[in-house]
Design a protein around this nucleic acid. Structure first.
Lengths: 154, 154
DNA sequence: AGCATTTGTTAGTTATGTCTAACAATGTTA
DNA sequence: TAACATTGTTAGACATAACTAACAAATGCT
């Protein structure tokens, strides 16, 4: 799988910028400084300086007043983060039954720090729970019952 | 429960120091600068300056060249972090079957960023899995089978 | 007691990553 | 096209949290 190559010389902040750029590109076709600024809730000069850093690291293409694009490498990193985010988000909402906003917020933090291995296991765990065979009541259903009543369903 | 009072005006770094002090106190009776330094893998001047900050915030008691103690407030914060750590660690090792070192490392990161709500749900989830009624094979066993064989046990 | 070692502190540097204020380029529109 | 608004950049400040080098206190040993 070789995901190691993609990992952890990037700070959480850098990862957030890459993720934002990738998401804006999908939504709007182009990423602009103002939009990244809005999405990440930082001021524009922070974006400019982050872009400089990411350019130096060959993760984005950007020249003064110009459009912003991810390099192939940047895109790989962004996709990896988005993937981590989605796995965690699913785990929190679908398995732990956590409300959307909290799940989002937690995924946004944890995606930057969780190890590849744990993420893979989380993914497998979701698969496992969803793959529950027809005869049995889904674990998630049982868990939700347990959450409400404090004991196993009959 | 009022755990909110205890949360998130403390940086990850501060939380690490408080945790280390609490743990050393339990192991050794006294926390010393050199030991905190070793445990957190930072140099001693970093510890000194962190202690100054924590003193200002009334989380530790410390005077020059003297012993280091947690205040009541500091102790509460430390206990909360240790509790988060333990819950996450159990989840990773017992539920996801992740190896000790990775589980530890991930818990150490995630304990600083996970929300109270998600942590509570993780705890409940562990309870739920362990509380599996006598008749049924434990979920964790089934999951481990699934991990190895890629499909549900018969 | 006196010297050496260990432990702790101070001062000052560095790296991130944010911010504000001021300026510059771009775009819009009358 | 000139004026204005929006967008982006630069310069410089600030906070956090680490570091090294140099010094000071405490401890241990003979």
């Amino acid at each position: 799988m070789l995901k190691q190559q993609v990992e952890r010389q990037n700070t959480p902040s850098m990862e957030d910028y890459l993720k934002a750029i990738a998401m804006l590109r999908n939504e709007n076709k182009v990423a602009r400084v103002s939009q990244i600024s809005q999405k990440l809730k930082v001021k524009m000069p922070s974006v400019t300086s982050a872009l400089k850093k990411l350019s130096d690291k060959k993760l984005v293409l950007h020249q003064k007043y110009g459009y912003i694009e991810l390099t192939t490498r940047g895109d790989k990193v962004a996709k990896d983060i988005i993937h981590r985010h989605e796995a965690l988000n699913r785990f929190f909402t679908e398995i732990l039954d956590i409300e959307k906003e909290t799940a989002e917020a937690d995924a946004c933090k944890i995606e930057h720090v969780i190890s590849q291995l744990s993420l893979e296991r989380v993914t497998k765990f979701i698969e496992f729970i969803e793959a529950c065979p027809p005869g049995e009541t889904k674990f998630s259903k049982k868990y939700k019952y347990y959450l409400e009543h404090g004991e196993y369903p009959e």
